[in-house]
Nucleic acid binder design. Sequence first.
DNA 1: CCTTGTTGCGCACACTGTACGCACGGAAGA
DNA 2: TCTTCCGTGCGTACAGTGTGCGCAACAAGG
Lengths: 230, 230
Amino acid sequence: MRYRGRMPDDAAKPITSVWTRPHRPQREQLSREQIVAAAIELLDAEGVEALSMRKLGTRLGAGATSLYRHVANRDELIQLAVDDVYGELKLPAAAGRGKWRAAVARTATELRAMVLRHPWIAPELGQVGLVHVGPNAVRMSTGLLAQFEAAGFPTGEKDQAAGTLMAYVIGIATAEAAYLSLIARSGKTEREWVADLDPDSGKAGHPEQIREKDFRYGLDRVLDGLAARL
Amino acid sequence: MRYRGRMPDDAAKPITSVWTRPHRPQREQLSREQIVAAAIELLDAEGVEALSMRKLGTRLGAGATSLYRHVANRDELIQLAVDDVYGELKLPAAAGRGKWRAAVARTATELRAMVLRHPWIAPELGQVGLVHVGPNAVRMSTGLLAQFEAAGFPTGEKDQAAGTLMAYVIGIATAEAAYLSLIARSGKTEREWVADLDPDSGKAGHPEQIREKDFRYGLDRVLDGLAARL
DNA sequence: CCTTGTTGCGCACACTGTACGCACGGAAGA
DNA sequence: TCTTCCGTGCGTACAGTGTGCGCAACAAGG
């Protein structure tokens, strides 16, 4: 093996020696799906402001700027992550007659659960809008519209009805997500937090059940108001 | 006047000459209110990510780090700005009997208008929660609760009712704000945007009127659902 | 073997938030 | 009037950030 390190020629490129050369055993292929998946993992674990291209790159065993071959920039990456999360939703089939209400309620519950699973998504929805244009978001949006159409809402009104429901669900889920993030940053669990804040509030039940009940209350009121239009 | 610039001692501090010395004609006093006001101005004009301490400092004729004497950090500054904006709300007095619905609707309209005036606030509400703890936010929160109490909701339920209304209003205003920010970034007006996207949609009226109608529709549905509980 | 396109990555730039400590101006005390 | 002290503005510095640019290594195809 040639001892190139001592060759006089090497003075021209003094930085890299043959031995310290990266060597690059095999070039692992990066893909957009892989990047988005890792980004969601990191977002779930540490929140939106902890997502940096460098950190994500090293987590994927790659350099920071390599990601830019597959993703235009950080904002686009987050948009992709948002739409990917929308893909988790399982929508019930549209059903008319007495069944529409259960289907819509199920969709709303799914949506709330999605936001609570990925709390970082809430501020993002406020920046990009509920009319998110990714394929998964569109799928969910048209699915909800179909449910309202099957319920019997006239063509002009079903958009308004769906918008009303979406606004309520996103609004309350956003509030819950922010509240939970605040607690998470304090390092306590939700029950400890509530107990420390108001010691004799344990009588009303576990806080997560209370939140769920409050969500259900508002959902029923919104559905009552909508049902009265039929 | 002593000619300190020529003193041999001055070799120790070679950088500043007496003539280039800042001279600092008078020390303008910075105040927290002033800083928050300028921050809101900048946020309204350029959005949340354009707010940097350096930019804000120079806009106030001060150095970037001077702000830290009055404000703990950037996040706290934004929280202060949020609460300051809450202070713009004019709440109607709580009214019972047939009047509660108009009062609540007026509060909701004020809240939506506030978000539309300051679109940057929407993602912030998603991060800090609707249960914002600033004095102005608390004032508005208790005011709304009083309206529901005057309406005749029992003690346990008025919180849920107020939460439902808040969730709907914040949700839809957030969506609108995001949509308007998106348009604003494109440089067009809302009407141009809508016309370019769907040329024959002019028949339905001006887009801002449509948005207002949609907001009113959902608000009426929510209020219907709540009124049915009385 | 050579060419050609694709992709990872090192470097560099402009910019961020903010800790630290100095220096100045006014107020308070001697 | 002189000294001391404290509040506050600011310069400097550091560790980050997103991302444009160009090179280098590979895969495929001729």
